[in-house]
Nucleic acid binder design. Structure first.
Lengths: 176, 176
DNA sequence: TTGAGGTTTCAAAACTTCTTGAAACTTTAG
DNA sequence: CTAAAGTTTCAAGAAGTTTTGAAACCTCAA
């Protein structure tokens, strides 16, 4: 049975919820943000039981959430001398975390998008007999493809920590 | 009763779904992406009825979705000479759309985040009597606040079309 | 080998969000 | 002013997601 460590202040729980919501907005699950925050604000590593207790989550939920956080490198396991169970601490380098998500998730998404557009492009030409119509649609798909490539370039630069120039984004797609 | 205009190819519907999913990932609703895409690929403006027919959506859903798209400026109303009902066409300047979302939604989010952290910061010091603990937590909250400010700066630059340097993001938060 | 402590899995329940269909409301032509 | 056409709203239902609790599964110490 977990030792009920420090009771954690109300304010801390609110920060946890805030970050939970932010994470949710970013496409992660809310509990991930809540747990990460508690660990980030704790000077010592915490065990699964403490986390569940503080955040009113079941052991199962805590376990699943911690695993997801580990997968993203947002949390690290640590061991305490005598103790058998695992303890966890937060990865504090938020910049690295963001970078990793951009690289592994966002970039991947943009690639899939570009691929889907290529497929569509191949399928499109045979569709309609009227040349002018066909070309209109194909041109639009090409425009989207260019957008996908641009996004890929931009993300790649961001991930590499290079300077980013957003202007082509605005220029190329203006319709004047 | 809508005229069933051109049947729209399978490929087009797939592009629509792809973009729908992309929009969903971005925090919008999938139908928004689907409708916008159909309009974007159509040489002529379309009416609500045609859209609903092609995408198998009810009139109500089409109406709500179009209104949301109009609110974001992603779609414009247009009128056809004799016809009474409204027709819609896609905003083609995707860069402007992205810019607007960054400005009105993301920036707002980061601001709220910063605000929540300030509140937490005020609430935190009184919580724990041990000075060293207290300072640890406050420092961490300050770190998050700095992150929020940095994000705000970055977004503001992006929205203004200025060059963006992502390195502070990586440097400041490294824990070495 | 056995048992205690801890973790993971998973089906069911609770909760959210999305979609529908029908009714109410607007608008415009006659 | 009336009626027809089109649009919007909204409550109910459907669909999808998240959370839980309990059982199965490890792992290590004795």
């Amino acid at each position: 049975m977990s030792g009920s460590a420090e009771p954690v202040t109300q304010a801390e729980l609110e920060v946890a919820d805030t970050i939970g919501r932010l994470m949710e907005f970013w496409g992660f699950k809310r509990p991930m943000g809540r747990i990460w925050t508690l660990l980030y604000l704790s000077p010592a590593a915490l065990g699964a039981a403490e986390l569940g207790e503080q955040l009113k989550m079941s052991a199962g939920a805590v376990s699943m959430t911690l695993n997801e956080l580990l997968k993203w490198g947002a949390v690290k396991k640590s061991w305490r001398p005598g103790e058998r169970r695992d303890f966890y601490e937060a990865e504090t380098s938020i910049g690295k975390l963001v970078q990793r998500v951009l690289r592994e998730r966002e970039l991947e998404l943009v690639r899939q998008f570009g691929e889907a557009l290529s497929n569509a492009d191949s399928a499109l030409p045979r569709a309609n007999e009227m040349a002018t119509l066909r070309d209109f649609k194909r041109d639009r798909v090409h425009e989207l493809q260019r957008l996908a490539r641009l996004g890929e370039t931009l993300l790649t630069a961001l991930v590499a920590g290079k300077m980013v120039d957003p202007t082509p984004f605005l220029k190329v797609y203006g319709d004047t």
